[in-house]
């Protein structure tokens, strides 16, 4: 008997296996996104933009129109495409470095303007591609390449809580949520709701996905899951922060 690969339909098969490290959460976030695109049947309308960092390795991931930009600029580029072609569905895909550090002004202003796009941000608490340096989302006391004694809160401040920030500055009609790759079905439903918010045109939609980085955390599979599900979710609370009001 022949068994087929269980892969989302919109994934581009000829580029698999993908370029992410073993155990990387990007594959899972992109699987959730792929399943959401399949369920909504919007593959022919999606424009996918990826950022610099590990997220750029998704440039050939889907069978959809894709572009790659630098340093958080994926948000304004997708905004421009959405304004020029309102019938398209724009997805800005970035990491925590691109979204919260070097390109945070783009995320903040797109959210404040309530742009009709979907932003998906992958939070793995480190800069993955450059070798595991401290990121805005690094947990207090967490050891990284540039914080070898653990992150010192008195010097570097507290980790960025992106969805809380975006929820505070967006208007009614926006969708803001934080999911985790440990609960993939929930994450898929969040991304699906975010895309539905964009299709309905009520406002900005933002999903942060807590993700894994075994390479830079230097963890085995067991510790990878426990760091994601026990340590990270203590500081980054999973759930929906802002949901558009249902039409009567």
């Amino acid at each position: 008997m022949e068994f087929d690969i269980s892969m989302p339909k919109c994934w581009r098969r000829e580029t698999k296996g993908h370029k992410f490290c073993p155990g990387c959460g990007h594959g899972l976030v992109l699987k959730a996104l792929g399943l959401a695109i399949d369920e909504l049947q919007i593959q022919d309308r999606v424009v996918f933009g990826c950022d610099i960092g590990c997220s750029l390795l998704a440039y050939d991931f889907f069978n959809v129109d894709t572009m790659q930009t630098h340093h958080g600029r994926t948000t304004p580029v997708i905004t421009g495409i959405k304004r020029a072609r309102p019938d398209r569905i724009g997805i800005a895909y970035m990491g925590d470095g691109g979204g919260y550090a070097i390109g945070s002004q783009h995320l903040v202003n797109a959210a404040a303007r309530n742009e009709r796009i979907t932003a998906i941000l992958v939070n793995n608490t480190v800069y993955g591609m450059t070798g595991g340096q401290m990121a805005p989302t690094t947990l207090p006391g967490m050891k990284t390449e540039t914080s070898p004694y653990g992150r010192e809160i008195s010097q570097t401040g507290y980790p960025t809580q992106g969805p809380e920030m975006v929820a505070a500055i967006t208007r009614e009609g926006a969708y803001v949520a934080r999911g985790t790759v440990g609960k993939l079905s929930q994450l898929k439903n969040m991304i699906k709701k975010a895309l539905e918010t964009q299709i309905a045109g009520t406002g900005f939609s933002f999903v942060e996905a807590l993700s894994t980085c075994p390479t830079n955390w230097s963890t085995n599979a067991k510790d990878t899951w426990s760091f994601l599900e026990d340590e990270m979710t203590k500081y980054f609370k999973v759930g929906e922060l802002k949901v558009p009001a249902k039409e009567e």
Partner: peptide, 19 residues
């Protein structure tokens, strides 16, 4: 159930074993 594995895709991360 039938369990099928595709070695051209498996990177040996072990996440499945723990879950």
């Amino acid at each position: 159930a039938y369990f099928t594995l595709f070695p051209t895709l498996c990177k040996g991360c072990g996440l499945c074993m723990e879950k």
